[in-house]
């Protein structure tokens, strides 16, 4: 496989701000590139130099383990110089605005900035102020495009397709950027998407995005090929959304009993980090026959390598 090929790759956008902005050929291009990196990541020598001499800045305003390390590793494997800003010690803590931070970083001529921010639209604002490409690693509750792309890659890896699959996304949809990005992407790729969650955790008019909504989990899981669980985002909850975690688990936690409604070969996914015993039964999460949670993390690096490669050029 010619990973090092210099063939010009065309993407219709300068930045990766959300799945909403992408065309289906953009998505196919990213997934195609990502597939090529899967085997590289499993090989002995994992490093290539297609981004040699390029500078990648990771700007994470919110705590993150997997996304940040995944982006860092992806950049390094491609040979880029990767700098991860430590926000807690930076000028932002001293009251600098996002635009001023952007201007400062821009003056250092990076080739790509990866940003995660607690405010929806922060990456859009940043992209208007810098010359380089901006990759969104999660903005507020709006989008988390690379997560959706790695989820799609994982599904394709296991099921060989997405078209025609019935996919359930369950849990805290209201606060979830992962849910939104996945809804756009899975719809685009021809899946049927079921949204499951308590009414208090469903965003207004979500059905207008072309999904079926359920507050009864068993009904929503009926004959599903994929069950995507979401983390209960307690840190974003400002007032009473739920009575208790144990009641939530009773009604919306993924248990073997509820999973029986889905197809026999249904796969379980979770973007992590998991709240075991709240949204998912701990044994199910670790069931190697059903859970692809670890594979999601693995393919995450490949997807981010593909995005860095494509948007750096």
């Amino acid at each position: 496989m010619a990973i090092n090929s210099n063939k010009a790759i065309k993407i219709s956008k300068k930045h990766l701000l959300g799945i909403q902005d992408l065309s289906i050929s953009d998505v196919n291009l990213i997934l195609f590139e990502a597939k090529k990196f899967i085997s590289l990541n499993k090989s002995k020598n994992k490093k290539i130099d297609i981004l040699k001499g390029k500078t990648q800045i990771n700007l994470f305003f919110e705590p993150s383990t997997r996304t940040q390390s995944s982006f860092e590793l992806a950049g390094k494997r491609l040979g880029a110089d990767v700098m991860s800003m430590n926000i807690t010690n930076s000028a932002i803590k001293k009251g600098e605005t996002l635009i001023d931070t952007a201007m400062t970083l821009n003056a250092m001529h990076p080739d790509i900035i990866v940003i995660r921010h607690q405010d929806s639209g922060a990456c859009n604002l940043l992209s208007q102020k810098v010359n380089c490409a901006v990759l969104n690693a999660g903005d507020g509750r709006r989008e988390h495009p690379t997560q959706a792309l790695l989820d799609a890659l994982t599904i394709i890896d296991r099921k060989n397709k997405i078209q025609g699959l019935r996919i359930a996304i369950c849990g805290d949809i209201l606060h979830s950027r992962v849910a939104r990005s996945n809804i756009y992407l899975l719809n685009m790729l021809g899946a049927e998407v079921n949204i499951i969650g308590p009414s208090n955790l469903l965003p207004k008019d979500i059905n207008k995005l072309g999904v079926n909504t359920f507050s009864d989990m068993k009904k929503g899981l009926k004959d599903c090929d994929i069950v995507m669980m979401l983390r209960l985002q307690n840190e974003r909850m400002t007032s009473s959304f739920l009575s208790s975690n144990r009641e939530y688990y009773e009604y919306y936690g993924l248990t073997p009993d509820k999973l029986n409604e889905a197809k026999n070969d249904a796969l379980i996914m979770h973007p992590g980090p998991m709240n075991r015993g709240i949204e998912i039964d701990t044994k199910l999460a670790d069931d190697i026959n059903k859970s692809v949670i670890k594979e999601q993390v693995e393919l995450g690096v490949a997807v981010r390598m593909a995005c860095l490669k494509i948007f750096c050029q």
């Binding site: 909403q20 929806s120 639209g121 903005d139 507020g140 509750r141 709006r142 989008e143 950027r177 939104r180 965003p203 207004k204 008019d205 979500i206 207008k208 995005l209 400002t238 007032s239």
Partner: peptide, 17 residues
């Protein structure tokens, strides 16, 4: 309306506000 920024509807849902 607490923490609200835009009309509650499909636009708020899409923008994540």
């Amino acid at each position: 309306s607490k923490n609200g920024m835009v009309n509650d509807g499909i636009i708020a849902t899409k923008l994540g506000l």
